[in-house]
Each structure stands twice: as structure tokens, then as C-alpha cells.
Design a binder for these strands. Structure first.
Lengths: 108, 108
DNA sequence: GTTATTCATCGTACATCGACGATAAACGAT
DNA sequence: ATCGTTTATCGTCGATGTACGATGAATAAC
């Protein structure tokens, strides 16, 4: 019911719509897009650096980061003082693939 | 501030992050993904047909359709009795392009 | 030990979402 | 004219999102 067969080149990859929708939701805020983009430029960031970069309270940034981490798009490792956030590039690539597959099926 | 320069092949296409985030938001619900997919299969649909297809109240479907229309992904023309909903395939293609551009910039 | 820094989490306040039923308008059919 | 169908919109209710300040824990520096 929540799966869609997609005529893709990658054989038999059905798309799980709730999962895909969750991915979209994680990206549905400009601040998170900016954060993700910022993370992608550097290799790793601590929360503080992002707070300094954007004009947001530290708690707000922490929340946005959590959303990205929960969505699996960002890696998180608590380090000594600063925590280490890193784009999970494979996950982003995977999401891009899924999004592309889904959207191209909608404009063939 | 909300624009990101992306090293894309398509020259000079800066991405407007609030706009992109709005696109993501429109797709951030499984029901809307299913509706969009359904619309893409048929050429055009009335609201009723979608109501019959999915187990949702008519008002709910109408709301979801409105979101898709407001996001510019679906065309809307009120016809005699039934209204006519149609995927705007160019808009979807455009969004796919923007998403791809943004996401690939995040996993280079 | 004390202090400063960094961070996650909690609580709060407000806005928005998502579902539904009810309703009214438009229209075809009788 | 009346009835049934289709649809958009309104109101409501609970859940979720978004922002912030406050707080406490961990740790580096002194």
C-alpha cells in the first residue's frame, strides 16, 4: 500500500513512501538545508561553529542537528568537549537516488 | 544569505533554499507522495477519484491536493462538476533538478 | 578546586499540520 | 424545481514543529 513500483534502471527497487516522506521532512526547513550545506563544505563541524555561522540560538541549532542525525543524513560522534557532526555522504547519495527515482517517475 | 552557490554543470544556477525547503515540505507526507504518483499515472484526475482510491476523507484529500497545487507541482482547473488535477511535469522535473543539484553538492 | 566553554535536554509559547465532519456552492439529471 | 454528486472551505481537535532561555553535565584551562 505504501510502496510504489518504479520503472527504474536499478532493478526492482520499490520506494518506501513513508521513509521517503521522512527524508523530505528532514530537509523541509531552510535552516537545515543551510546547515547541511555548511557541513558538506567542511569535513566535520562542532555545534558551536554552526551557532557562530548562523544567527540561531544554540538550542535551536542542536535541535536541527538532531533532526538531520535522526534522518540518518548526518553522522554524530560526541567527542571530548565539542561534538563532531559530519555529513553521511553515502546516505545523502542514497536519498538523492531515491528522490530522483521517485520524481522522475512523476514527470516521465 | 539564503542562496547557495553550487558547482553545477548548469551554469550559475544558485539555489534558493527557502524555495527548495518549501518543495521538500510539499512532499513531506506519504499521502501526498501517493497522490502525486497516482496523478502521474493517469493523465488527469478529479478529487473524487483520489478519494475513492485512498482511504481518506474528501476534505483531507482536497487539503493535500491544495498543498501540491500551492507548491506548483500540480495543475488545477475547476471544470464543470469535477475539478481537474494534473501533474505539472515540467515543475516536477525542475524540482528534481534542483534537489539533485543541492543534494549532490552535499555528497561530492 | 574554580572557572569558562561546549553541548544536550527540558520547558514553554506560538504556529502549523493532519485528520475529520459539516456546510454551502455549482452543476447534471430527472 | 428538486435531488444527488462533486468539491472547496470552515471549524475543531490533537499532534508536531520551531524558536528561545534555563539548566546541568562534561571537560579543558588555570
Amino acid at each position: 500500500m505504501n510502496n510504489v513500483d518504479i520503472p527504474s534502471k536499478t532493478a526492482g527497487a520499490a520506494t518506501d513512501l513513508p521513509v521517503l516522506a521522512a527524508g523530505f521532512a528532514a530537509l523541509a526547513h531552510p535552516a537545515r538545508l543551510r546547515i547541511l550545506c555548511h557541513l558538506a563544505r567542511r569535513d566535520a563541524c562542532c555545534c558551536r561553529e554552526i551557532v557562530d555561522t548562523f544567527e540561531l540560538a544554540q538550542s535551536t541549532v542542536s535541535q536541527h542537528l538532531k533532526v538531520l542525525v535522526d534522518a540518518g543524513l548526518v553522522h554524530y560522534r560526541p567527542e571530548n568537549r565539542r561534538s563532531r557532526y559530519m555529513v553521511d555522504r553515502e546516505a545523502v547519495a542514497r536519498l538523492e537516488e531515491q528522490v530522483s527515482t521517485f520524481l522522475s517517475c512523476c514527470h516521465v
